[in-house]
Design a protein around this nucleic acid. Structure first.
Lengths: 213, 213
DNA sequence: CATTGTGAACTCATTCACAGCG
DNA sequence: CGCTGTGAATGAGTTCACAATG
């Protein structure tokens, strides 16, 4: 059912997608959904949906489909988002502030509990979600006190590696990195990069290919 | 050399990465770099670097490596970022404002020329980069006047599809979508999604796997 | 002679096709 | 009968290994 088979990274990404569509389906009053319909909503192949789910169990009913509510619960269990997670954000510029206030975070159980910066002009100020901006030197202490499990880096890229090192030394082994460029971390530390200039480069490449402009 | 062979999407992503490391290498005074060194910096396999570049030409010198400056120019040509591109941003909340002011945009030749929203309280206000926030109903007219080529969607997800439709009807066929959920667009329109709750889900999944917590 | 460029081998991911089952 | 679950087939992407070469 789940042991020893290697699960594609893309499968996890898609589970997240399925989950969101299931929320919308529930909101629209659906009780059951077929792999075909869910696939259509997520713009993937129906067999892909079934295979992705198949890595983790048998959640469907043959001849009928999947229960919209049950499947949400199963996916939440798989993704381990059936509980809250504690975050901190390092680098309280425009981007850091935006992330912090992002609605989806709260709704999905990601609690932003601390905000750090190294700019004396910002330290001591209160963010729009009511957090005091703390000196980044306090990070190790605060992370321990508040049991923070995930660090979000929204500094300029030249500061990102130092922040990552600080998080590591504070035993935070999960990082979302919004700064461009690679973080160097030991392999027991998980990093997810979000780099939107890469996405823009991808678009310009494709535009150039298709339109020759 | 470049015709007819299928180029992996991931190759384009990596070219963007290589480019940034080459900038840093140039800044540090390097004139040449081997595939091994560049690969190490980008945390990929050296053969991968050579194969990625090999799709587009022969840019290296055997026994020596790649010219740090020349290779930057070649990659810029490939990605079509050797010229400016005009953007507009739709949805001027915290995230939209953050993106608009993001330093890398300007530096890399992505010009944010217009800002739209549908909130009467925001329309008419001036953003931190000096743009007047315009009613989204003006989008088709402005897009045409300013020759905007890429649309960035930073609205709430329930508004995203309508914005995408508006961009499409204005002949903007390249979209960066920051709202969660899938946009439905014709296949001549390129969409890049940036969804950071997916990244968080990926982290929690991995944390759960590795630590069982 | 160090390093590129590249076919061939391999690994990983997606899709097909149909057996299994409610 | 319809839709899931899954082994087998296909396809895509990465890495190897070495010939080519400045």
């Amino acid at each position: 059912m789940d042991k020893s088979i290697k699960i594609p990274k893309a499968t996890i990404t898609r589970l997240s997608l399925y989950y969101r569509q299931l929320e919308l389906l529930e909101f629209d009053g659906y009780r059951m959904v077929s792999s075909e319909k869910l696939a259509w909503l997520c713009q993937v192949n129906p067999a892909q949906v079934r295979k992705d789910l198949g890595y983790f169990g048998e959640f469907g009913v043959r001849g009928v489909g999947y229960d919209v509510i049950d499947l949400q619960l199963e996916i939440k269990k798989i993704l381990a988002v059936n509980r809250d997670w504690n975050l901190c954000i390092v680098g309280i510029g425009n981007l850091g502030s935006a992330i912090m206030q992002h609605q989806n975070l709260q709704e999905r159980g990601f609690k932003c509990l601390a905000a750090f910066d190294n700019d004396p002009a910002k330290i001591g100020k209160i963010t729009q979600i009511g957090l005091e901006i703390l000196n980044v030197s306090l990070l190790p202490k605060i992370v321990k006190e508040l049991k923070i499990e995930i660090g979000v880096i929204t500094t300029i890229s030249s500061a990102a590696q130092a922040v990552a090192d600080l998080l590591l030394s504070s035993k935070v082994y999960a990082i979302v990195n919004f700064s461009p460029g690679m973080l160097r971390v030991p392999d027991y530390c998980m990093v997810e990069n979000i780099d939107f200039t890469i996405k823009l480069d991808m678009l310009t490449y494709k535009l150039h290919q298709k339109l020759g402009c």
